[in-house]
């Protein structure tokens, strides 16, 4: 209910622009490591903190590393973490939402109240806590996102199942003698899966923001690894000395890519059943 207002179509960057940005980003992420591999530990102290130029479109950082080149590697890690974590969160949410939607009754009521209460928890703090106790690293970050971002998928799956249950074709299947497993796998899952897929897509930007936030705080991916959050963190000192690009460029990459993903996912959402739009907001 909290996000009803966001469900209405808003001004979004045009679909072609978003597709172009995302295509370029994915292309760069796939091709650059093949064509221009990055040595994560290499430094070049003869060209430190150079402003953006044709040779270094994103400038260089305080260790002489090319900011744009490292940003592309960072984007690769962030997208990977984002997709894996979004899938993990959707698995947790799908399981709990499925339980609520299939069993209904008091199980559903209790689970939904629990979900409402959990959505009132400060999830960044909980995420920080999870990572801190497990030692920062890839697995801890993914777990932290999976455990804090499953609520929306649970709501979607539950409401979809509740509305499917009352439809005539389910009654027909039951009358035809189909067992529980058959109804679940042949009649319910085909309707729920596209919605889960959309929920995963809408979740990816959120997972990326969570990961970059943790990395920025020094609680995410290992510091020597080129990741967008780490780079923004590293660039802070240069930024205070006037070299804005080493923090601003990796951040701009996050903004462009997450905007593009959100815009495309939003278009997809608008084509789906309008009834579920309200639930699909993340």
């Amino acid at each position: 209910m909290a996000d009803l207002a966001l469900s209405r179509p808003r001004i979004r960057p045009g679909t072609p622009v978003a597709a172009l940005v995302l295509g370029a980003a994915v292309g760069a992420v796939l091709l650059v490591p093949l064509l221009l591999p990055l040595d994560q530990s290499a430094v070049a102290l003869d060209r430190t903190t150079l402003p953006p130029s044709p040779a270094h479109p994103g400038g260089t950082d305080d260790l002489g590393r090319d900011v744009l080149h490292r940003s592309i590697y960072g984007l690769r890690v962030s997208l990977l973490v984002g997709v894996v974590a979004a899938v993990a969160a959707a698995l947790v949410g799908g399981l709990i939402g499925g339980l609520a939607g299939l069993l209904g009754g008091w199980v559903d009521r209790i689970l939904m109240r629990v979900i409402d209460t959990i959505s009132a928890l400060p999830h960044l703090l909980l995420g920080i806590f999870i990572v801190a106790m497990l030692r920062p690293g890839l697995g801890a970050v993914i777990l932290s996102i999976g455990l804090t971002h499953w609520l929306s998928t649970a709501r979607i799956v539950r409401s979809e199942l509740l509305s499917l249950r009352t439809r005539p074709f389910i009654d027909a299947a039951i009358a035809g003698g189909a067992g529980r497993t058959r109804i679940l796998t042949r009649h319910l899952l085909p309707h729920v899966l596209p919605k889960i897929a959309l929920a995963v897509t809408l979740m990816i930007p959120h997972a990326v923001w969570h990961e970059t936030s943790l990395s920025f705080l020094g609680l995410g991916l290992p510091p020597h690894l080129a990741s967008l959050g780490n780079m923004i963190n590293d660039g802070q000192r240069s930024l205070l000395a006037g070299a804005w690009w080493s923090s601003i460029v990796p951040g701009a990459v996050i903004v462009a890519v997450t905007l593009a993903i959100a815009a495309l996912a939003g278009r997809w959402r608008d084509h789906l059943d309008p009834r579920v739009r309200a639930e699909l907001n993340l």
């Binding site: 930007p205 970059t212 936030s213 923004i232 601003i248 903004v255 997450t258």
Partner: peptide, 8 residues
């Protein structure tokens, strides 16, 4: 603004 991390 929604897609900008607050620390950035």
């Amino acid at each position: 603004v929604q897609s900008m991390p607050s620390f950035w």
